[in-house]
Design a binder for these strands. Structure first.
Lengths: 215, 215
DNA sequence: CGCTTGCCTAAGCGCTTGCTCACCCTCAGG
DNA sequence: CCTGAGGGTGAGCAAGCGCTTAGGCAAGCG
């Protein structure tokens, strides 16, 4: 149910970044940051991956930190968007929570390089940029908490500690970006389904029909 | 002069590191790595925090990476120890799983600076050291999986995907190190209790008595 | 054609990094 | 007293860092 009418996985995930050279640099930076971390990545490495000279980077971005901020901002926007559209969707709280977790996890697994940068490199941002991003994260938290509160009010969920459970649910989903490996046995879809099931158990909503994804 | 080795009344977490100067350097490194990350930390910063000159570091450690390795090794040993003693303890699978999660989470919250370094700076290790650490992590995974398998065999747990659930449980616990804040509202004990409850729900074992920790 | 504009590079500046080296201080054993 | 070893320091090296600068080249336009 719920007919996940999903805007198809963007074939060009960074279509909003232009011109072309700026996008190539940003994609190269995502890869490099995800592999080695922000501080261990050099501007020469980023430029090299994009097939450019080190100086080319500074035509499109003022600093290396601005690159990280752009990535972080776009990624958080996307993540929040995913959560919001599930939270504001139709259906019972259980259905909405399940959909939110499934799509949120699918994104973290499918775009785990981006997600890794977005979720684990916050410390490298400037104070100003970090507070901007933290505000977005609080909105993500609010979106999930709202679904859980709805479920509790409707008597569908049994949750003694709503803020704590909200935190745990988001934490569980976010950490997917850390361990997910493309060469592993699980597809993003499978992980999403498994996690949606686990989260429904956490809030005391029995998964429908016991139809748990088996393998 | 005054007693150089003063008992602080709290546990001495790095008692196994000697001599004294080496321990002070290690503690300084844990703080710095946890705050800024390995790559953003300079050897001068570590030495400075320990009240020494930059060169002093190299009397006790061959490289900066060796410091990280020592921290990571000791931390993983401790974490594995905690999980093992819960897994090998007595009681029903639900009791053992609950105890394992509670103590594991309590450690990650209470020693969140150390845990942050231990859990999130693996990439900075040399290939050799990283494979050594990864082997320890696989043992942690095995310890948790064993409890869950016991519960399934005993008919106490309802777990469709044991490896997936094991991964999720560990992931949930580990991520505590990322978000836990000393100035937050929760104590390590409270988080441990909340999480133990959540994990029992995840494996389909009804939490005992419904005595869930309230805010 | 000359001139501007946008994108890019080669070279390199100033600084910081991990790490080393020559030397010093303290103290136990003879 | 001397000696030698272990723990410490100030100064600094080579390499690598983020970033800048001067200039090149192609395209659009009078």
């Amino acid at each position: 149910m719920g007919a996940a009418k999903e805007t198809l996985g963007e074939e060009q995930p960074w279509a909003e970044v232009s011109p072309d050279a700026a996008r190539r640099l940003l994609i190269a930076a995502v890869e490099a940051f995800a592999e080695r971390g922000y501080h261990a990545t050099t501007t020469r490495d980023i430029a090299g991956r994009a097939g450019m000279s080190p100086a080319a980077l500074y035509i499109h971005y003022k600093t290396k930190e601005e690159l990280l901020h752009r990535i972080s901002r776009l990624g958080h926007d996307k993540a929040l968007d995913i959560l919001r559209s599930a939270a504001d969707g139709e259906g019972t709280p259980a259905e909405r929570l399940s959909a939110a977790v499934r799509s949120f996890v699918r994104w973290h697994a499918g775009h785990h390089t981006t997600a890794r940068v977005v979720q684990y490199e916050l410390d490298a941002l400037s104070d100003e940029h970090r507070t901007e991003i933290v505000a977005l994260r609080r909105q993500s938290d609010a979106a999930v908490r709202e679904i859980i509160n709805d479920g509790v009010r409707a008597g569908e969920f049994d949750v003694p500690d709503v803020p704590g459970t909200t935190l745990a649910v988001l934490s569980l989903c976010i950490d997917v970006a850390r361990w997910f490996n493309v060469e592993g046995r699980r597809t993003p879809d499978e992980v999403g389904a498994t996690y949606a099931d686990l989260v429904l158990r956490m809030v005391g909503a029995v998964p429908p029909g016991g139809a748990a994804p088996q393998r």
